[in-house]
Amino acid sequence: MTKRDLEIFVTVAEQKNMSAAARLLYVAPSSISQAISALEKQFHTKLFERSGKRLVITESGIVFLNYARHILAMYQEMEAAMNAASDTKLTLKIGTSPSVGAIIMSKMISDYYQQGHQANTEVTVNTANAIMGMILENTLDLGLILGKAPSSMVVSTPLFQDELILVCSPDHPFSAYQSIKPEQLDGQKFILREIGCRTRSQVDQELLRHDVQIQEIWTSNNMEAIRQAVIDNQGLAFLSPVVIDMELKNGRLHPIRVEDFSLKRTFYLIYHKNKLVFPTMDQFITSCKKYSKQIRMGNDSYFSLLK
Rank of each mutant, 00 (worst) to 15 (best):
L159M: 13
F160K: 08
F160L: 13
Q161C: 01
Q161G: 05
D162G: 07
D162P: 06
E163M: 10
E163D: 07
E163N: 12
E163Y: 07
L164Q: 14
L164P: 02
L166G: 03
L166R: 02
V167N: 04
C168V: 09
C168P: 05
C168T: 14
S169T: 02
S169W: 00
P170Q: 05
D171I: 00
H172P: 00
H172I: 00
P173S: 04
A176G: 02
Y177V: 02
S179D: 02
I180N: 00
I180F: 00
K181H: 04
P182R: 06
Q184I: 03
L185R: 02
L185K: 07
L185C: 08
L185E: 02
D186K: 07
G187S: 07
Q188L: 04
K189S: 12
K189F: 05
F190W: 08
R193V: 01
R193P: 09
E194R: 13
I195Q: 13
I195E: 12
G196I: 13
C197D: 14
R198A: 11
R198H: 05
R198C: 00
T199P: 06
R200P: 03
R200V: 03
R200W: 13
S201G: 07
S201F: 04
Q202H: 06
V203T: 03
D204A: 15
D204S: 14
E206V: 11
E206P: 11
L207K: 06
L208N: 12
R209Q: 08
R209A: 12
H210Y: 11
H210V: 09
H210T: 06
D211P: 02
D211G: 01
V212L: 04
Q213H: 09
Q213K: 10
Q213S: 06
Q213V: 04
Q213P: 00
Q213T: 03
I214P: 02
I214K: 02
I214A: 07
I214N: 03
I214E: 03
Q215A: 03
Q215K: 09
E216M: 08
I217Q: 11
I217F: 03
I217C: 11
I217M: 12
W218K: 14
W218L: 14
T219V: 11
S220P: 14
S220G: 14
E224M: 06
A225P: 00
A225G: 08
I226P: 03
R227G: 01
Q228Y: 11
Q228M: 12
V230A: 00
V230Y: 00
I231L: 01
I231Q: 09
D232G: 04
N233Y: 01
Q234N: 08
G235I: 04
L236N: 08
A237G: 04
F238G: 12
S240D: 05
S240E: 05
P241W: 15
V242L: 11
